[in-house]
Simulated scan of single mutants.
Amino acid sequence: MIRQAITALFITAALASHAFASPELAKQKNCMACHAVATKMVGPAFNAIAAKYASDGGDAKAMAVKIQKGSKGTWGTMPMPPNPQVNDAEASALATWIMNQKWTP
Rank of each mutant, 00 (worst) to 15 (best):
A51T: 09
P84Y: 00
A93H: 03
M80I: 02
C34S: 03
K102T: 06
A19I: 05
M32T: 12
K102I: 05
P84F: 00
T74F: 01
I6M: 14
N47H: 07
D56R: 11
S71H: 13
S71E: 11
V65I: 11
G73K: 05
A19G: 10
M80Y: 03
A48H: 04
I2Y: 15
E24F: 15
A54L: 13
R3A: 02
C34D: 01
A19K: 07
K29Q: 10
N87C: 01
T12E: 15
M99S: 12
A95D: 02
P44N: 05
S22V: 00
T77V: 13
K29A: 03
V42T: 06
A62H: 04
A51K: 02
P23Y: 11
P82E: 08
S17L: 11
G70M: 05
N100S: 10
A5D: 15
F10A: 13
A89L: 09
M78H: 12
K52A: 03
K72R: 15
V65H: 09
D59L: 05
K72H: 13
T12Y: 08
H35M: 02
G57D: 04
S17A: 09
D56E: 12
P79G: 05
L15K: 04
M99T: 12
K69T: 10
A36D: 13
K52Q: 07
K29D: 06
Y53V: 12
R3I: 09
K29V: 02
A21V: 01
K29I: 01
A14H: 08
A48R: 02
N47L: 11
A8M: 02
M1Q: 12
A5P: 15
I11H: 09
F20I: 14
P82G: 01
